Computed example of a mutant assay.
Amino acid sequence: MVLSGALCFRMKDAELKVLYLHDNQLLAGRLHAGNIIQGEEISVVPNRSLDAKLSPVILGVQGGSQCLSCGTGQEPTLKLEVSPIGTSLLSDLTKPADAEATSWVSWGPSSSPLWGSVDCSPASPCSWPSSPASPTPFPSPAMPFCSQPVNIMELYLGAKESKSFTFYRRDTGLTSSFESAAYPGWFLCTVPEADQPLRLTQLSEDASWDSPITDFYFQQCD
Results as ranks from 00 to 15, higher is better:
91 S>P: 01
104 W>Q: 02
11 M>E: 07
146 C>F: 10
209 W>A: 10
192 P>Y: 01
30 R>N: 10
43 S>L: 08
130 S>I: 07
41 E>A: 07
22 H>Y: 08
47 N>W: 13
48 R>N: 06
127 S>D: 04
59 L>Y: 01
68 L>C: 11
35 N>I: 08
8 C>V: 10
47 N>P: 09
181 A>E: 03
86 G>I: 13
141 P>C: 04
63 G>N: 02
188 L>M: 10
102 T>C: 06
72 T>I: 13
31 L>N: 07
54 L>M: 07
114 L>G: 01
93 L>F: 10
186 W>S: 10
217 Y>D: 05
92 D>I: 13
38 Q>N: 13
33 A>V: 09
125 P>E: 00
221 C>M: 05
33 A>R: 12
131 S>P: 02
140 S>W: 05
117 S>A: 13
85 I>K: 14
7 L>S: 13
211 S>Q: 04
209 W>G: 02
120 C>H: 01
203 L>E: 10
197 P>F: 11
81 E>F: 14
32 H>Y: 09
146 C>Q: 14
156 Y>F: 15
173 G>H: 01
162 S>T: 11
22 H>C: 08
38 Q>A: 07
188 L>G: 05
62 Q>T: 02
211 S>N: 00
16 L>I: 06
187 F>T: 14
49 S>A: 15
194 A>G: 04
142 A>W: 12
32 H>L: 14
12 K>L: 14
72 T>Q: 13
65 S>H: 09
132 P>F: 04
205 E>K: 10
76 P>M: 02
158 G>T: 01
156 Y>M: 12
96 P>D: 11
48 R>F: 07
104 W>C: 03
220 Q>I: 00
220 Q>V: 05
162 S>V: 10
204 S>F: 08
175 T>V: 11
212 P>S: 05
198 L>P: 00
116 G>D: 07
150 V>E: 07
146 C>A: 10
114 L>H: 00
5 G>Q: 15
53 K>V: 10
6 A>R: 01
203 L>N: 06
37 I>V: 15
155 L>G: 04
71 G>Q: 01
55 S>M: 13
212 P>I: 03
115 W>S: 13
45 V>Y: 04
199 R>A: 12
160 K>F: 05
101 A>K: 03
66 Q>F: 09
163 K>V: 15
3 L>S: 04
148 Q>E: 15
155 L>W: 06
38 Q>I: 04
108 G>H: 02
20 Y>N: 04
14 A>Y: 05
153 M>Y: 03
93 L>W: 01
27 L>K: 11
96 P>Y: 09
68 L>Y: 15
48 R>Q: 11
1 M>S: 10
17 K>S: 07
122 P>M: 09
51 D>H: 10
169 R>N: 13
69 S>D: 08
213 I>D: 00
94 T>N: 00
177 S>A: 14
47 N>R: 08
